[in-house]
Design a protein around this nucleic acid. Structure first.
Lengths: 122, 122
DNA sequence: CTTGACCTTGACCCCAAGGGCAGGGTTTAG
DNA sequence: CTAAACCCTGCCCTTGGGGTCAAGGTCAAG
């Protein structure tokens, strides 16, 4: 299959597929005319990458999942490295939520302070 | 004062000062040799921009605060537009926290599912 | 045979907030 | 006079692609 077939089947753009390849996640063959050719398994790979990116993983962090798929597993997340990647990401999200929560507190403090200045000092 | 004096006094890098200028937040004079010259008020501007960026505002969103300072106020956040900018940012943070919370739930679900597959299907 | 439609390729610029480096001019101290 | 310490502009880099481009391939209908 050609690149647009893969993109359509996986629900991403052609551009995204080429980007994944540039990140080393896909290694398509080439036809004599230079066109990239993909195998059926690549659809699952692209779907997986798309799903993981939407979970906030970086392209690099999707590596273990793709390897897991290529190793013949039906699911990309049954390998130990994938579980570790999930846990790492959860920890990142927790850290980010904590940061944002603290940020929100600082913002509301600043807002309250500024509001009180407005009413107090005309 | 020259750019490195301003940067040192405000606690940012020279590069950052030039970036703020490129975003229209500073308009330094120029000496005959081309060097930028800053006035004392610019220190407060740069400090304010730095503080606001650390709160996650974009350079563009700091505009109302800088205008408020330039209008002669001691504080950049006593103007109505600044209060609005604070509230907008708080809403953004709230939205982001909600997204991340939902994301975290999805991740823990996926992790639990993957773990159960590992123990269930050898 | 040619036209048109559709496909592919690589290459370039863009985003936010700068970091890093190159190459060159200037100023100040010793 | 020279070296250190400044200053300037300009380019490439970061994420995950989006947008757009010219150039060339492929297939059908006319």
């Amino acid at each position: 299959m050609h690149i647009s077939d893969l993109a359509a089947e996986a629900g991403v753009t052609v551009k995204a597929v080429r980007y994944y390849e540039s990140q080393g996640l896909l290694k398509p063959g080439r036809e004599p005319n230079g066109y990239r050719t993909y195998r059926a398994e690549d659809v699952a790979v692209v779907r997986e990458v798309k799903a993981l990116l939407s979970l906030g993983l970086t392209a690099e962090q999707t590596y273990p999942f793709i390897e897991c798929l290529r190793a013949g597993n039906d699911r990309a997340d049954v390998c130990p490295a994938s579980l570790t990647a999930y846990r790492t990401r959860i920890a990142e999200v927790d850290r980010r939520i904590a940061e944002l929560t603290e940020l929100r507190a600082r913002l509301t403090d600043l807002l309250a302070d500024a509001e009180s200045w407005r009413t107090r000092a005309p």
